[in-house]
Structures are given as C-alpha cells and as structure tokens.
Design a binder for these strands. Structure first.
Length: 274
DNA sequence: CTCCTATCCTGCGAGC
DNA sequence: TGCTCGCAGGATAGGA
C-alpha cells in the first residue's frame, strides 16, 4: 500500500506522538512471523530507553534508540497505529504493541504480513540500506546525474522508476501518475527518453509526491495513517485505477497494461512512445 | 551485469 | 448465498 507519501505521513504522525512520551515501556508480541521474524529479545532489551528520533528513508521507517535503529517497512498492508490507554479496539492482524511513556502506544498491524520490524546497529543500517537510490524530495537531489543513470538503462521507464536502486519512494501508483503528468509513455525505453522529458519527469515526480503528502496520501484499499484516517489523494489521481475512463486532458480512453509485473495505467494518446 | 518471473500472505470483489 | 478465481500499493531471490 504505502509509497513515499504514505510512509512520510506515518513518520510525521509518529514524530508527533513521541512528543507526548518517547520512552519504551514494554513490548507485546502476538505474532512474529512477518516477512522476517521479529527480533523479540533484542527489542525487549530496549525497554527503558528513549526513541530519540524517527526518520524515513525510501519507504522505510527508522526509529533511533541510542546506538541502535529499529527498521520497519509497511509492505503492502502494514500500519503503525497510535492508541491511547483505555481506548482503541483490537484488530485481527495486530502483531506488535509498543507501549510508550506518556500513556500511548504504537500497534503494528499488517494483514498480509509483507511488512517487517528489524533491529540494527547504526553501522548495520547503512549496510542494510546501501543499494538504495536518491531521495526524490531531498533538496540535494541531483537531477542531472539521475538523468544520466536512467539514460543508461534498457528497461521501460516505468519499470526503472519503480526500481528503488535508481530512485526511491515511487511505487506503482505514483509511477503511473508522474509519467502521465510528464506525458511520457510508461513503455518507452529509458535510453530513448529525451533529456527534456527527464527534466519534466523529475519535476512531476516531486510535484505528485508532494501533492500526495499534502492530501494525506492515497487510500486505494487499506492505507490509513497512524490515526486510522484515510488519505484523500486517491480522488486526485489522473490515471491510476481509471482504465476505461476518459483522459482528463484529451478525452480519449485510459488503458491498463501489465508491465514489470504490475498493472500500469496510461493514456496512449497523450503519452506517445516516440 | 540486466531483466523477468515467481513468491511471500490475507482480503475482497467479480463471476458463476 | 456461497464458492472459486484473480488481483492488490513491495521487495527480493533465482534463472535466463
């Protein structure tokens, strides 16, 4: 479910939560076989310590606790839900409950269990996240070198855009959206995309991700922020999930194709291959 | 190397 | 109403 905007919102929710109490009081594990087995013992050893800050890198959440980092990924259906003591209702796929000082807790709920929670040293973290490409919303993003990277690739541009080695944070929804906004066919080979088109693409990637954050992310199916609220950006999607509907720009029909193992939405009339 | 496919898992909607 | 089938926002191993 979650791409960069959704994970960023969760990160901000948790950041705010930590203002009301950031000490780890207890962990409760209900189920540990997520994508990876949860390191229960290691996490238990963090009891009494403070989560000094939370960060997002790509689609990962990072909780810093002294010299260690709890790394969490939401997979397709993961949620870190904030609950206050005495409130909140148990859900079927609640796997981990982190009780914080200040009377609130974080509950990791994940029906499909593609998400995970890992424990790393700060050194181990850079190793673990070393194959990741640049952050699209970083002010240090070098568009020129990004264009150079992409120009060397032979895959369709949409596939490359979703590959976290090249650029992080863009998943299936925002890849289709950014390509439509930049008027580039998802099928176009990276090496054939012109420099001018790449300029447009980086601009649209940034714009669509920022707009999605502004609108609380996209709730297509299950995404909820940490306060269990749905996003609103699904109402502003121009091509994703709109196959058979009219293109907002040229009024021809939006189609879907299977590309890189994912459903891809585009307007063949606006997004020409050559 | 790069690219492509299958896979992990549950829930839901479509179609019969 | 109830069954089966296919598909869903991600990441990665293994094969070509």
């Amino acid at each position: 479910m979650p791409e960069l905007p959704e994970v960023e919102i969760v990160k901000r929710n948790i950041e705010e939560l930590l203002l009301s109490g950031n000490r780890i009081e207890s962990w409760l594990f209900k189920r540990s076989d997520l994508r990876f087995v949860i390191p229960r013992r290691g996490l238990q050893q963090l009891k009494g310590k403070k989560i000094s800050r939370v960060e997002r890198r790509a689609k990962y959440l990072l909780f810093f606790v002294e010299e260690r980092v709890i790394l969490s990924h939401l997979g397709m259906t993961g949620q870190w839900r904030i609950e206050e003591n005495g409130t909140g209702s148990k859900q079927k796929h609640d796997h981990v409950i982190l009780q914080l000082s200040g009377g609130k807790r974080l509950v990791f709920c994940d029906p499909r269990r593609f998400g995970f929670i890992e424990l790393l040293s700060v050194d181990g973290l850079s190793q673990r996240l070393s194959g990741l490409g640049p952050e699209p919303l970083s002010k240090d993003l070098n568009r020129q070198s990004l264009t150079e990277t992409f120009s060397r690739l032979q895959s369709p541009v949409k596939v490359a855009l979703m590959n976290q080695k090249n650029l992080v944070g863009v998943g299936n929804i925002y890849a289709s959206e950014a390509l439509f906004r930049a008027q580039i066919s998802p099928l176009k080979k990276c090496s054939k995309v012109k420099e001018k088109e790449y300029d447009r693409l980086w601009g649209q990637v940034v714009d669509v991700l920022q707009a999605a954050i502004q609108s609380g992310g996209s709730t297509i199916d299950s995404y909820r922020n940490s306060r269990s609220e749905a996003g609103r950006f699904q109402n502003e999607l121009l091509v994703y999930g709109r196959d058979g509907e009219e293109c907002v720009k040229c009024h021809s029909v939006i189609v879907s194709i299977f590309l890189g193992g994912r459903n891809t939405f585009w307007c063949p009339s606006c997004q020409k291959r050559s």
